[in-house]
Design a protein around this nucleic acid. Structure first.
Lengths: 114, 114
DNA sequence: CCAGGTGGTTACCGATGGGATACCGGTTAC
DNA sequence: GTAACCGGTATCCCATCGGTAACCACCTGG
């Protein structure tokens, strides 16, 4: 995640792996359990979700709390650091929503240069 | 680039490949030639730069103009669409700059949980 | 006892990404 | 002539990523 430092003010724009952004999105309204996350993230497998969650925890963006209550119950929640990412993330998502059609058009135009 | 659609308002935050963001940064003050781009992008190989440029052109973010002048001269420049990406990109970069230390600390803390 | 849910782990596998190296045709400078 | 620069391409290689499938310990409900 955040692969590279930006020495000259240049930074690669890659907020984590394929699912990281979506996971953070899913957590912004409160903690969620492992299996609750799998519902909105249709198609994610247990392994991949577990992996993404692990790196997000490692990077201090979310916290994992396992309630040792009678029944097994693990919750993931945003840290303040994780929450601070929502702003720039929303900006990026808004840009994509706004320009999605243009991107698609550009691709189609260059794939069919007839 | 922009790997996935965002069906439920969730989008993966991945603005292109490793170098795409940096290339756009390099172009924001005007057109640059192929070899001019290789200077600030230290470490990029010709193949990878050519590849990144190709997908950026395909997605309509930059334009390639080859001046058929006597000497070989190819210039890359931002399109309006490409330029519109600078805003959200800056937001993301600013976030990273602000929180870079926290990320590093979190990583170090979880790698050495002694 | 057994089924089912919860929160994972492990082994395997194919696709992709990114890097190194070599090479290329065209043009200009010496 | 030949060396160098320009804008690439061709080939090969390796690491990572994401996915599938199987399995697991633990607990609960019937």
């Amino acid at each position: 995640m955040f692969d590279t430092v930006c020495p000259s003010g240049l930074a690669p724009i890659r907020f984590g792996d394929k699912w990281a952004g979506m996971i953070i999105r899913c957590l912004q309204d409160g903690p969620r359990r492992f299996s609750e996350l799998r519902v909105p993230l249709r198609g994610i497998t247990a392994k991949v979700l577990a992996g993404s969650l692990r790196t997000l925890v490692r990077d201090g963006l979310i916290v994992r709390t396992a309630h040792p209550a009678p029944t097994q119950r693990v919750e993931y929640a945003l840290t303040p650091l994780g929450r601070s990412m929502i702003g720039p993330m929303d900006a990026a998502c808004a840009w994509t929503r706004e320009h999605w059609d243009e991107l698609l058009d550009a691709r189609e135009a260059s794939s069919a240069p007839s």
